[in-house]
């Protein structure tokens, strides 16, 4: 008989070694997340997937599932905290959805809708962030970077290039490029790299694509992210 956990009253099975997130995804239960992508090693940095496991706050993407674990996921208190995290992400960067070509395909935007975020709530930082257009095929816009490190992991673990990394600490953290000049155009990065495809926001954009996908055909135009994710399609990726 398989082992089980309970998420919001629903008993679901899990296999040894699976995290709470793995088990939830397999059971088509949506736990909000941004830095997690099942293709890569869990990171546990965005904290959006925080759930209460046996009463203790843990990151669902890194916490191994345990037999009989009772997990609270979709609660008003947790969603309030998740909404506050997303609001902080919005004000810490420069996320201008109305003019961003990732709009409708953006996980950050989709999660904000999913959590009923109606305003940024906090004062915008409007930080000066560097835009790097030096690569012939990819535009790196740090204004939209949420430091999820998916590109770091993809470049390191899949592409074997280590093009990206994080530098600085705390609010001074920033995405850096592994090249002599620090510019993407001088790195070994290629548009065919997996790292070019995994950004959940509009920080890494393929040039000359623009708004080629019409409104109505974008990933989250008709279904919220909780539905898209549980139906098995990974949102926010360039198809």
């Amino acid at each position: 008989m398989s082992k089980t956990i309970t998420i919001d009253g629903n008993e679901i099975p899990f296999a040894e070694g699976q995290t709470i997130m793995d088990a939830a995804m397999a059971a088509k239960i949506y736990i909000p997340h941004l830095c997690h992508n099942p293709e890569f090693k869990p990171h546990g940095s965005c904290k959006l997937c925080t759930v209460r496991a046996n009463g203790r706050a843990v990151s669902a993407c890194t916490m191994p599932a345990g037999e009989g674990m009772v997990i609270e996921n979709k609660t008003g208190e947790l969603d309030d905290e998740r909404r506050a995290i997303v609001q902080m992400l919005f004000v810490e960067g420069n996320h201008l959805c109305p003019t961003c070509e990732k709009s409708g395909n953006c996980q950050l935007q989709a999660v904000a809708y999913c959590l009923d975020m109606m305003s940024p709530h906090y004062n915008h930082f409007y930080p000066p962030r560097e835009v790097d257009a030096s690569h012939p095929d990819v535009f790196l816009d740090r204004n939209r970077c949420i430091l999820c490190e998916l590109c770091v992991r993809a470049s390191r673990d899949v592409d074997g290039k280590n093009v990206f990394g994080l530098s600085g600490r705390g609010i001074g953290s920033r995405l850096v490029v592994n090249s002599a000049s620090g510019r993407l155009g001088d790195s070994t990065f290629a548009v065919t790299d997996r790292a070019a495809q995994v950004c959940p926001t509009g920080a890494i954009l393929i040039k000359r694509q623009g708004f080629s996908v019409p409104i109505g055909s974008r990933i989250y135009d008709h279904k919220p992210i909780c539905q898209v994710e549980t139906e098995g399609k990974s949102g926010g990726e360039h198809e």
Binding site: P98, T99, C100, E101, V131, A133, F139, L205, K207, R208, Q209, G210, F211
Partner: peptide, 11 residues
């Protein structure tokens, strides 16, 4: 200024 040209018609 600094934005990619593809963004401009929408911006």
């Amino acid at each position: 200024q600094g934005r990619p040209y593809t963004e401009v018609p929408v911006l």
